[in-house]
Design a protein around this nucleic acid. Sequence first.
RNA 1: UCCGCGAUAGCUCAAUGGUAGAGCAUGCGGCUGUUAACCGCAGGGUUGUAGGUUCGAGUCCUACUCGCGGAGCCA
Length: 431
Amino acid sequence: MTKHYIEDLSKYVGEEVEIKGWLYNKRSSGKIRFVILRDGTGLAQCVIVKNNVTEEVFNSFDTLTQESSLILKGKVRKEDRAPGGYEIETTDIRIVHIASEYPITPKEHGIEFLSDLRHLWLRSAKQHAIMRVRHEIIRSIREFFDNRGFTLMDAPIFTPAACEGTSTLFETEYFDLGKAYLTQSGQLYGEAGAMAFGKIYVFGPTFRAEKSKTRRHLTEFWMVEPEVAWNDLNDNMELAEDFLEHIVTSVLKNRSNELKVLERNTEKLEKVKKPFPRVAYTEAVEILKKNGVDFQWGNDFGGTDETIISSQFDRPVIVHRYPTEVKAFYMKRDPENPKVALAMDILAPEGYGEIVGGSQREDDYDALVHRIKEHNLPMEAFEWFLDLRRYGSVPHAGFGLGIERTVSWICGLEHIRETIPFPRMIYRLTP
RNA sequence: UCCGCGAUAGCUCAAUGGUAGAGCAUGCGGCUGUUAACCGCAGGGUUGUAGGUUCGAGUCCUACUCGCGGAGCCA
């Protein structure tokens, strides 16, 4: 027998199907009863009419508790009164397991309660929709790079030193070799990859031990980081533009049902088409001043600053050429103005903040050595990295995209903790 | 680390310093088109912890613990 899934119900109108799933909710009106069945692909309303089934099947309804697992057989029909437009007229129910009293009831719950029950919360419709959008985002990211001849190159998670020297790192003992740190970016390794393969992308988890406690922060989050040999800042911005447009287009095309569940305003996502507006840091500072912010040239933008800048535009905005001081040591200075780096960030619309950070890299040996010293970084740890400038150095550029912030923006969520199956935050390590 | 808010039934929340309640969930009963169904009945409490003020504290005061939001830092 072919396997039937709820997301395919429209293909089976008039046919008998067998759905294996869990009871999401149930309602009764005496001799007609409704089971909302969940199978991982969607929800289906199954109607049980007393005269159409055996007494045993009809009465089994009474024993079913929320999240009990069962195998249900019935005939599919179009039914406007059913959520989703299709309904299963039940002919048989086989109970697999009667669930204990399920803690997540179909009413409101607090965030602490739900977070403690994250392993069960993932079954809820909204969380289910978010995870499916997350998957589509990741799928479309791989598709984008794979179709353009990029090689996937995984970077290590244990690293010997800070890669940017700014953020706080998680530290762990590493046998007889002293301390190891959990990576905060795969970028330096990505640069080695770009020199070997030309075009690569690193895709993996990254870790920040910052004591940030906001709706935009996790201690463990995923980043995708393309790095391309021979690309300059402009090439980098164009790549990022194409990339974001591809992701948003894919979600709109393949996950429209999920966006509907999330009540996402898709009109705003439809506008995410290149070219994106590009403003130099110095122009962005002017925008802030015009909006009454007392902002000093040379500082980095805060969350509220980013929101003001991005609210001027109807699509993601690229801010480029930041002051050298606020950016990482490996970013190349602008030959036309050494006060700024050839860096670029992309700010998502609707106040979702920085989702992309990137730059053209410093490819000159002497300049890079100088920057490492300037930042007080341990030179020994970067000897291998300097080799990339000793043996056939070329201009190159890349960027990093934070997956969870992207999911948060595309889904229109209040908090980043719902964008990853099991969030890790400063005060949460479980479940 | 700093600033602000909060903790009462399994869950979400009420309760002038004076008898701790409601909705949901659970159990029992009713209903042939329900949409977080609805209607009736029932069980369910060391009011976060430790002190203090008071004739009397869920309520006022102090400390602590935990949680939430934000700042800084960052993707």
